[in-house]
Amino acid sequence: MKPGERPGAEAIERKGWLGAHRWLLARRLSQLVFLGLFLAGPWLGLWIVKGNLASSLTLDVLPLTDPLLLSQVLASGNLPENAAFIGAAIVLIFYLVVGGRVYCSWVCPVNPITDAAEWLRRRLAIKAGAHFSAQTRYWLLGAILLLATTGGGLAWELVNPVSMVYRGLVFGMGLAWGILVAIFLLDLFIGRRAWCGHLCPVGAFYGLLGGVALVRVGALRRERCDDCLDCFAVCPEHQVIKPALRGADKGLGPVILSGHCTNCGRCIDVCGRDVFAFTTRFANNHRLANNPRPTNPCRSAIHFRSANPSRTAINTRPVNAGDNHPQEVSS
């Protein structure tokens, strides 16, 4: 990115505006389709999907249940009906395939809000801000499960902006607008990507799934990278890019294996040189197996080995214990 230019300018020049916003548009469409499916019932009388993101019934046969909510119900000592278990299993399997935090970037109603805040933050060049640890979300996730275990029930659902907004849109908003405004202001003035990237325990939960999910973004043609940093500028979890994009010397594969990656595909859009593409976690396998350079036992390699034990080519390579590169870099 040249000084004064917005991220993605080169990509727009090379691929055209549509080509440089392909995945962004697809995501917005996906968010609208999900919302539309839920709203078609109450607004148009087309009852394709009933319920909300907590639990729903599609075409009167397909139950879907939020696994995080189900775990809170279980933690508080309740045994739900089978429908809830089946629904949660379907959701789990789905996100284990397409990527855990696909929920965040393709479904969650808060995503357009934080994206808007981030966009405005960039336009207004707001730099200052409080720093939240990106680990906060895991502590919060633990805390809400602890609350459920110690008799607090589904305490998180009293304040959860994700379900509040969706429920609000489908069942009546009440004062839920307030929390959207609050998140917008938080992300705009207080901390970059503060909510989705640091605090939200729902995202943390799906991030845990994402750690082992199949579909990934990979810097498959990373040798083409010209260090313009556009991808870092737009990535909501920019710490996940570095190991994949810059890790070749350290023997890291080009596939982004961090569970924090939301598979939003924005890096694919803004890259003028088509470095990134959607792939699967096994793409690292081929790349590494065909890579003549010695490989260090880093976390990505462990991931790939556990994912596919039949391909253990790198196991036999020399191990240098002192040269250990953690895959996730704290932001």
Partner: peptide, 29 residues
């Protein structure tokens, strides 16, 4: 307390109520 820890707040009961009797509590209620 029991009810609140078992209810997942999905609103499926609201949807299946033929008389629009049930409603989900909104923020501020």
């Amino acid at each position: 307390a029991d009810f609140q820890s078992a209810c997942i707040r999905c609103g499926l009961c609201v949807r299946d109520c033929p008389y629009d009797t049930l409603r989900l509590a909104r923020p501020g209620e």
